[in-house]
Write a protein that binds this DNA or RNA. Structure first.
Lengths: 201, 201
DNA sequence: AGGTATACGTACCGATCGGTAACATTGTCA
DNA sequence: TGACAATGTTACCGATCGGTACGTATACCT
């Protein structure tokens, strides 16, 4: 009476692996309160697992933080590419869509900026696992923004791309500094003004 | 032979009080490595004093961090007002001077952004002594930037002022994320483009 | 010289940090 | 049934965390 009912695979009925639960909880706590502010004990407690389970899935807390950021990276590019895909061949509209979304997110009550940016602030030391992931993400973002600026036909595409990056990072930070009603809500408008000025040169 | 020579008061000849040495060392370590990353033991060790001396001058580490930021606040406004004083009655030139200076600072090797911004990222909790100082500084900066945008005659002064704040915060963060050669070096140029676009509307 | 207040140092506190050793328990599959 | 892999349990490690009780030195004023 037990071998005839795997209508669902065992893998699917099995509750989330310990590593997955840990990463899910860590992601939430790290983002909302910061990586340094959260101890491994609190993570395992909220995840309903024990500490050895954490260290069987992750070699260290620093690597757990890096894993959190790698997942964050995937979700970030998913959002980015979603805005891109919504306006094929129109980089200016792509930027506008992406920034409009950022501007809205910054107004939400529990917004705490960009996990990548925050991690880099928390870990200034070069070579730290979390910082490595964060820097790679930002390098790639810069590359793509400059490419989009060039595709718009900007005279100085690198400057415009960098200007957009400054506005975006400013929105991330201002969002968590000022909360709702802060300067971040105008990021899309300001980016559009900057693009306009950079094109008619 | 001892009562006739107080040409200088005793207070002045005395080597720096423990509290001052502590604050000087704490300021340096907090800025370069972050507040959470530095323990009170390291502060007192590098300052050449002992821990009770720290807690006689400051009620807690959090308050020491707040004192560090209050001093940072004074120096920040000194730099800001210096740029303002250099171009009386010309807010656009004042902004340009201030941002040019920021752009240069971000290219220095040991640049680590704005101490205020970093502290707010490290302490997301509302009401934390360090965060309170940081938020007050940013609120005032926003107010002044908006006022300067209005003085420039911008159609939508609040949007322009906020846009400048976004660029500034973006420069702070990008400066420590990318190091020399990063997007922050173009902050003055992008701000000028944004101003230009905002005025001719 | 003596009193007094201020500043400083030694030694210590309990709590928490990230991380681990050793072993028991469970479910899966052959 | 028996082997295996994953997880849980318990207890522990040395280091560091922020913070303090308490005694000692120094400088000044009378």
């Amino acid at each position: 009476m037990k071998s005839i009912e795997p209508t669902i695979k065992a893998d699917e009925v099995t509750p989330p692996r310990a590593g997955e639960k840990i990463l899910r909880v860590a992601r939430d706590l790290f983002y909302r309160q910061g990586i340094r502010a959260i101890g491994v004990d609190e993570i395992v407690r909220r995840a309903g697992v024990t500490k050895p389970s954490l260290y069987r899935s992750f070699p260290s807390k620093d690597e757990l933080a890096a894993s959190y950021l790698r997942q964050y990276d995937l979700e970030f590019w998913a959002r980015f590419d979603e805005a891109v895909a919504a306006h094929p061949g129109d980089p200016r509209a792509q930027i506008a869509a992406f920034l409009t979304r950022i501007g809205k997110r910054t107004q939400k009550p529990d917004y705490r900026g960009c996990g990548m940016t925050n991690a880099a602030v928390e870990y200034p030391e070069h070579g730290h696992p979390a910082r490595v992931v964060s820097e790679a993400n930002k390098q790639e973002l810069r590359r793509r923004l400059r490419a989009m600026a060039a595709a718009m036909g900007a005279g100085d595409a690198d400057t415009l791309g960098d200007g957009l990056l400054l506005l975006i990072e400013g929105a991330y930070i201002s969002g968590q500094l000022f909360g709702a009603g802060g300067p971040a809500k105008s990021v899309a408008r300001n980016a559009d003004l900057l693009i306009e000025a950079s094109l008619q040169k």
